[in-house]
Amino acid sequence: MTTSNRTKTIKRGAIWGFIVLELIFFSVAGRFLSVSQTQFMDLDNMLLLLKQSAPIGIIALGMTVIMINGNIDLSVGAIFALCAIVMLDSQTWPIFAGLGELGVIPFAWGMALLTGMVLGAINGLIVWKTGVDAFIVTLGAMLGYRGLVFMYNGEQPTFLLNWTLVDMIESSLLGLEFPAIAFIVLTFLIWFLMTKTVHGRNAYAVGDNREAAVNAGIRVGPHMLWNFVLIGFLTALSSIVFYSASGSVNPNDGELYELWAITAVVLGGTKLTGGSGSVINTFGGVIAIQLLRKGLGHIGADTETVNLVIGLILIAVLFLDRQLNVKGKGELRT
């Protein structure tokens, strides 16, 4: 029993240990290899890192919920792009004319959030009503929603700069800019949702044993629908955070975001089969990936190398996780 508890603690703390390792490695290696003069563990650098993690990070929070629930959502990248287009384009719609740069913001954000929730709801409804695996449904949605993105403005980027909005997003509190604050606050909110509320409890139960959950009187279909609405909402928020400042979206934006989000969630220790996982550890997973990207850049590696290293690390992590699990199981076998 004590060994299996220890195994559990190791697994829970693994991602934080990995982050510490990264920090040490890049700080030391940076002394010898750095292309710039700045320190790696500089406060500004770390704050910037948090801000850059936000878009994938916020999506990864939703992905954690979905994956604990035993599902997956591959359509978030396309939802991300579509929400961005809606947010930017809606500011020029005649019905919102005359609201001014400030007045239009809530409406533009509202439209984007609504879009994300509706697209998520469509995924959830199909999963609930047809019983088709979420992987297949959202794979279809990924292609379909991307199609919508291209139908909206063809190959052209959608472009709109609202300076009031840019100022808002770039304003900072205690040195943290809006995206970073949003990421941190949302992490805590979703953590509360998953650990303290009935919905969270049911999410773990459904992901671990769907049949037992049905037998316990949980309405599994609507429950999963709400989780898809939630990830749609979070993806829209992520899109808002990212595009409010940049003001320009290409129809290919957000591609592979679903895979980055899944990578972060898996690095954080959430099981692909559902039933176990932690939002806080997903936060760690997101930070670990961003640290790796920045760190490798800091010591002069190019993008291709970064992707190769992240891929190798992901496989190594899953291998270690498997070893720990096998060990844990062996103990219980009689």
């Binding site: 509320t197 009935v198 409890r201 671990d208 044993n209 049949e211 037992a212 959950a213 009187g217 949980i218």
Partner: peptide, 23 residues
Amino acid sequence: EQGLVLGMNCRDNITLPQVSDLT
């Protein structure tokens, strides 16, 4: 297969059907 959520603790398994009333 049908009765228990094995990855959950004892308490949460017992209260599973009524947890929405225990808030």
